[in-house]
Simulated scan of single mutants.
Amino acid sequence: MTEHELHGMWAKARTHVITSQLAPTLLLAATIWFVIEGLGAQPGPIKVAAALVLLSSGILGAVVQISAAGEAQAIAADLAALAKHGELSAVSTRIIASAKWTVVVRVVTPVIFTLTYLALLWAIFAPPAVGGMMPAN
């Protein structure tokens, strides 16, 4: 592959990471609002459905993020291999250097999602005496 083709693949992987974060982030934010508005006071099936929607969106988003981050690492490795055969552009050098940050996408972001998800489950399902949200007035 050419350096230019690898740049295009890198851009596409980065776009996948960004777009894969949109739905889970919006759903988490919306769920926080729903909790504030009294989601915890709703019947059990509604609370379970909300939790499952968040979970499925988070899992799908994480799978895309982890996959795209792995592809980005491979692209950076291919660019590094090209460097052994000649000069690379400044863009390629930057891509190779920034590939180490894919760990944020592969590990940090899913951990933050999981902690936020667990906090929301606590707010939705726990009784107020142990930190659950009070029913809306």
Rank of each mutant, 00 (worst) to 15 (best):
A11V: 15
V111A: 14
V130T: 11
K47A: 08
Y117F: 15
M1F: 08
L39S: 08
L26V: 09
Q73D: 10
T2F: 06
A23E: 15
I36C: 07
T93W: 10
R14L: 14
P128L: 13
L120Y: 01
A11G: 01
A136F: 13
E71V: 14
Y117V: 01
A29T: 09
G38L: 04
L55N: 10
T2C: 04
P45I: 04
I124D: 01
V53D: 02
G40D: 05
L121G: 07
V108L: 15
A51T: 14
Q42A: 12
S20V: 05
A119I: 03
R14I: 14
P45S: 06
S98H: 13
I75L: 05
L115W: 07
A119H: 06
A90T: 11
V63L: 06
H85N: 10
W10E: 03
E5H: 11
A90K: 12
T114E: 00
Q21H: 00
F125D: 04
A49R: 11
M134V: 12
I124V: 13
A81E: 08
A74K: 14
G132M: 03
L39F: 07
L39G: 06
A123N: 05
W33V: 11
A126M: 13
T19F: 02
H85C: 04
A13S: 12
A30I: 14
A90R: 11
S92V: 07
A11I: 15
K47S: 08
K12D: 13
E5L: 11
E37D: 10
S67E: 04
M1T: 08
V105C: 00
V104P: 00
G61I: 00
A11D: 06
G38C: 05
V108G: 03
V48P: 05
G44E: 12
K100V: 15
R14T: 15
Q42M: 09
I59K: 00
V103C: 06
I96E: 01
T114S: 03
A51N: 05
H7N: 04
V105I: 11
G132V: 05
L115T: 07
Q42S: 09
L28K: 02
S20G: 11
T15Y: 10
R106Y: 00
L121R: 01
I46E: 13
E71M: 13
G131M: 03
V35R: 03
I112E: 04
G58C: 03
I96N: 02
E5C: 02
V130D: 04
L26Q: 13
V105D: 04
R94F: 15
V64W: 06
T109M: 10
S89R: 09
T19V: 10
D78A: 14
A51V: 05
T102M: 15
G70A: 04
L60W: 12
A80H: 07
E87A: 12
M133A: 15
T93P: 00
A11H: 09
A90Y: 09
V35E: 04
S98W: 11
P43S: 06
A80N: 03
A97S: 10
G8I: 04
R106W: 02
S98A: 10
L120N: 01
E37I: 07
L26E: 11
Y117W: 13
V130W: 11
E71H: 09
V130M: 05
G58I: 02
A72W: 08
S57A: 13
E87Y: 06
R14C: 10
V107W: 11
G132Q: 03
A30R: 15
